[in-house]
Computed example of a mutant assay.
Amino acid sequence: MGHIITYPFKPIKNPKQNIHIISISERIDKGKDSVLVPHRTDFYIVHVITGGKSSHMVDFNEIAIEKGDVLFTVPGQVHAFRKEEDYDGWLVAFSRDFFYQSSQDNYFLDNANIFNNLYPITSINFKEDELNAILTLILKITAELQKTSDTFQRTILHNDLSSLLLLSERKFMQENQGKTQNSLQTHDNKLVTEFKKLVTKFFRNQTMVKYYAGELFVSERTLQKATMTVLGKSPKELINEQIILESKRLLVHELMTVKEIGYDLGFDEPSTFTKFFKKYTGISPSKFKMDIS
């Protein structure tokens, strides 16, 4: 197995069209099975399943998907398609720069439940009439992308994509009404969201809860209470989970040795990294690397 490739967004016709739609079957065929192995993207993908059953690997978790499911993956996640005969659908791919036309757009990407990193793997099942509304928007976007680009196109594409994402966010909220009312819209939820963003950014150099509490202008006790209320885990557990997740991502990258990965993640000694990894996964980094290769 080679290293984890990060695929950048590539506009199809012109650099202003930083949104693209392709069928899942065509993406797998064009990729010549490259998308069947773990990879990253630097863009968002909405997977809309229109037929069959399959699974999609996201950060080493197999997610079962079937007709009516809509799965969301975000930049940086390691994921891979699975090839099944009757499995198909649409992929709506877009860059952050494309969607970011106002501060409200930026806020949506950072705080919407469908992309919220409190829920690193988000999948919603739509009933047939609801799915048809999503597919209608996909067809509108596809048709617009075939037209000659002009001063109106980006706004039209953005509006249709916004409608698709808002319908998905509404569906998520409806399916998780009790949870969203009691947790997702609270101050604790916002605090934990910001905490996890900071952890994702700084975990290599900062592993102390005190640092993150200081950055968030709260006490360690307040942060502890928030993470336990929202996720049932301590801040330290969440920091360790991020380190383990990135460890697994890098262990797929066979060009890096276990020793190099340990140093990359901030461990002073390879043995310390090995003990840490085994404590939380039950196996050594070398065994994990061998099993997944």
Rank of each mutant, 00 (worst) to 15 (best):
Q185T: 14
Q185I: 13
T186K: 03
T186I: 07
T186N: 06
H187Q: 13
H187Y: 14
D188P: 00
D188W: 02
D188T: 02
N189C: 14
N189I: 05
N189H: 14
K190N: 13
K190D: 13
L191M: 06
L191I: 05
T193L: 15
T193I: 01
E194L: 09
E194M: 11
E194Y: 06
F195V: 00
K196L: 15
K196V: 09
K196I: 11
K196Y: 06
K197Y: 11
K197H: 06
K197M: 10
L198M: 11
L198Q: 12
V199R: 10
V199C: 08
V199N: 11
T200S: 13
K201V: 11
K201D: 13
F202L: 12
F202I: 04
F202G: 03
F202D: 15
F202H: 15
F203N: 00
F203L: 00
F203V: 00
F203S: 01
F203M: 00
F203Q: 00
R204C: 06
R204K: 14
R204F: 08
N205K: 10
N205T: 07
Q206Y: 15
Q206G: 07
T207Y: 04
T207P: 05
M208C: 04
M208Y: 06
V209N: 12
V209R: 10
V209S: 09
V209D: 09
Y211E: 01
Y211T: 13
Y211A: 04
Y212C: 01
Y212Q: 03
Y212H: 05
A213Y: 06
A213N: 03
A213Q: 05
A213P: 03
G214T: 00
G214R: 01
E215I: 08
L216D: 08
L216G: 09
L216A: 09
F217T: 12
F217A: 13
F217E: 13
V218N: 05
V218A: 02
S219Q: 03
S219D: 07
S219M: 09
E220T: 14
R221H: 14
R221V: 12
R221K: 12
L223S: 09
L223G: 11
Q224C: 04
Q224G: 06
K225V: 10
K225H: 07
K225R: 10
A226W: 05
A226L: 01
A226Q: 05
A226H: 03
T227V: 06
T227D: 02
T227L: 03
T227H: 03
M228P: 03
M228T: 14
V230I: 14
V230N: 02
V230S: 04
V230T: 10
V230G: 02
L231H: 04
L231V: 02
L231P: 05
G232C: 05
G232E: 07
G232L: 09
G232R: 06
